[in-house]
């Protein structure tokens, strides 16, 4: 490789570097269309963001149900619930005994649990 060949090559490479081939507009348009088609949706803000943050309609349905059940238990509590709640809050050791006494083994069989027993 002679010095002049080296210089010529440097010159050719320099020209190639200085004059990059322009990207055809149609290609640019296609690439941008791909980019937008593949782009994830922006995260919603404000009330919509909060709504989605709590899980949307399914989670809201669960919240409503839980609230209604809680309200109903407050209005018409089944027998033993108040004792159970009191024992739970005070941490009484008598809890398990009282529950067993009030519920009774016969009640449990009503759910078919005895079938599973060996």
């Amino acid at each position: 490789m002679t010095r002049s060949d080296e210089d010529m090559l440097e010159n050719l490479l320099q020209d190639a570097r200085a004059r990059p081939q322009p990207v055809p507009q149609a290609l640019m348009d296609r690439i941008l269309a791909d980019a937008i088609a593949m782009q994830p949706e922006p995260a919603p803000r404000g009330w919509r963001g909060l709504w989605q943050a709590i899980g949307g309609a399914p989670a809201f349905g669960g919240l409503v149900t839980a609230t209604a059940v809680g309200f109903w238990i407050g209005v018409a509590a089944p027998a033993g619930v108040s004792d159970f709640a009191a024992a739970l809050i005070t941490g009484s050791d008598a809890l398990s005994v009282e529950v067993a006494q009030e519920t009774g083994v016969a009640d449990l069989t009503a759910f078919g649990w005895d079938i599973e027993e060996l």
């Binding site: 322009p22 990207v23 941008l32 980019a35 937008i36 782009q39």
Partner: peptide, 27 residues
């Protein structure tokens, strides 16, 4: 920003990166 849904970022990335990729592939 693109992954967060920013359209401007999509456009800027296209303009910045397309020439590099196309130029290299063409050569």
């Amino acid at each position: 920003r693109y992954a967060q849904g920013d359209r401007t970022a999509a456009r800027l990335l296209t303009v910045r990166l397309s020439p590099l990729v196309f130029g290299h592939a063409l050569r």
